[in-house]
C-alpha cells in the first residue's frame, strides 16, 4: 500500500520509482551474480593474484611483485615457450575461424533450402559435437595412424604412397590436423546458428530477388550475408574465446606437452603444464608462473572482446 503511494507521489526516499526499478533489476541479477561470484569469479581472481608469488605447489607464498611477468618475457626459456604457444594458439584459432565458420556457413546455406533428406543432414552435422573429446581424439588418432590408419591405407591404395605421412608426428602438420579434427567436432555449432539466422530471413525478400533474376550466388552475398551479420559477430567472438582457451583436444591427441616438439603447445596446455601438472616426469607445478600465463591470456582475450563489444555497439548505432 504505502509503497504504491510513495511511488505515485514521487517522494524522495528509498523506494521511489527509480530505486524500485533498480531493486527489481538487482533481484533479477542476484542469483546469477551470487553463484558466479562465489564459485567462479572469486576463486579465479584470487588465483590470478598468485601471479605475484613464487614457490612450489599450488599455493606459492613468496611475494615477488611482477618478477614472473618480467621472467616470462626476458628469460629465454620462458619467452620461447610463451611465444611459441601464442603463435600456435593464433594458428589454431585462425583455422577454426576460416575453415569452421566458412564451412558452417556453406552447410547452413545448403540446409536452409528445402530438399529431400534435409532433416537427416541437419541431424548429422551436429552429431560429432555430442561426442567427448576423449572419443574424438582416440578415433582420429586411430584413423591417422601411420601403421594401420585408414587415411594412409587409402593413400597407398590409390598409389599416393609418398603422401602417406606420419600426420601427427610432423611438426608442420600436427597442429593444422588437430585443428581440423576439432573443426570436425564443433562445426555443428556455427552451422546451426547460421541456419537460425538464415531461416529468419523473410521468404518474400528472397523470392523477389529470384524473380528479378539474381543468381543464388548474388542472393547469398547481396541479401543473406548482410542480414546475418549479427550472428556472424556472435559466432566470431565465441570462436575466438573458445579456441584461445582450447585444451582438451590437444591433451587428447598430442599430450600435455603438445607433441611433437611443442609444435601443438597452446596457451592452455602451457598453463596446465606449468601451473597444474608440472613438466614430465618431475611434475612439480609452478603456480605463480601458471597464473602469470593465465593472466596474460586473459588480457589478450579481454582486449579482443572489448574491441568486439565496441565495434558491434558502433555498428548498431550506425544502423539505427
Amino acid at each position: 500500500m504505502s509503497q504504491a503511494n510513495l511511488s505515485k507521489n514521487q517522494k524522495p526516499g528509498l523506494l521511489n520509482t527509480e530505486n524500485q526499478r533498480t531493486l527489481t533489476w538487482v533481484l533479477f541479477l542476484l542469483p546469477a551474480l551470487l553463484v558466479y561470484l562465489v564459485f567462479m569469479a572469486g576463486p579465479l581472481f584470487d588465483s590470478l593474484r598468485l601471479s605475484l608469488y613464487t614457490g612450489k605447489g599450488y599455493n606459492p607464498t613468496e611475494f615477488i611483485g611482477f618478477q614472473n611477468y618480467i621472467d616470462l618475457f626476458t628469460v629465454p626459456l620462458w619467452r620461447e615457450k610463451f611465444f611459441n604457444a601464442v603463435t600456435n594458439t593464433c594458428i589454431f584459432f585462425a583455422i577454426h575461424m576460416i575453415v569452421q565458420n566458412s564451412l558452417g556457413l556453406l552447410f547452413a546455406n545448403l540446409l536452409s533450402s528445402d530438399f529431400k533428406g534435409r532433416n537427416f543432414f541437419r541431424t548429422l552435422i551436429f552429431t560429432p559435437t555430442t561426442l567427448s573429446v576423449l572419443v574424438v581424439g582416440f578415433l582420429w588418432t586411430l584413423i591417422l595412424n601411420p601403421n594401420w590408419g585408414a587415411v594412409n591405407q587409402v593413400l597407398v591404395g590409390i598409389g599416393l604412397e609418398q603422401w602417406a605421412l606420419p600426420w601427427l608426428g610432423r611438426e608442420n602438420l600436427a597442429l593444422p590436423i588437430i585443428a581440423l579434427t576439432s573443426v570436425w567436432q564443433w562445426i555443428g555449432m556455427p552451422t546451426v546458428m547460421f541456419l537460425a539466422g538464415l531461416t529468419g530471413i523473410s521468404e518474400e525478400l528472397l523470392e523477389a530477388a529470384s524473380i528479378d533474376g539474381a543468381s543464388e550466388w548474388e542472393i547469398f552475398w547481396k541479401i543473406k550475408f548482410p542480414l546475418i551479420q549479427p550472428v556472424l559477430g556472435i559466432i566470431a567472438i565465441l570462436t575466438f574465446v573458445d579456441n584461445f582457451n582450447a585444451f582438451d583436444v590437444i591433451y587428447a591427441m598430442a599430450g600435455a606437452k603438445g607433441e611433437p616438439a611443442y609444435s601443438t603447445d597452446l596457451l592452455a596446455t602451457l598453463f596446465y603444464r606449468t601451473g597444474i601438472a608440472g613438466e614430465h616426469p618431475t611434475g612439480i607445478p609452478n603456480m605463480g608462473m601458471g597464473a602469470t600465463i593465465a593472466t596474460i591470456t586473459f588480457i589478450i582475450l579481454m582486449s579482443g572482446v572489448l574491441l568486439w563489444l565496441y565495434l558491434s555497439r558502433r555498428n548498431a548505432d550506425e544502423t539505427k
Partner: peptide
C-alpha cells in the same frame, strides 16, 4: 569468466 581457464581456480 569465459577467458580464464577454470582449472586455475581448482584449489580455491
Amino acid at each position: 569468466g569465459l577467458m580464464i581457464p577454470i582449472r586455475l581456480g581448482t584449489i580455491d
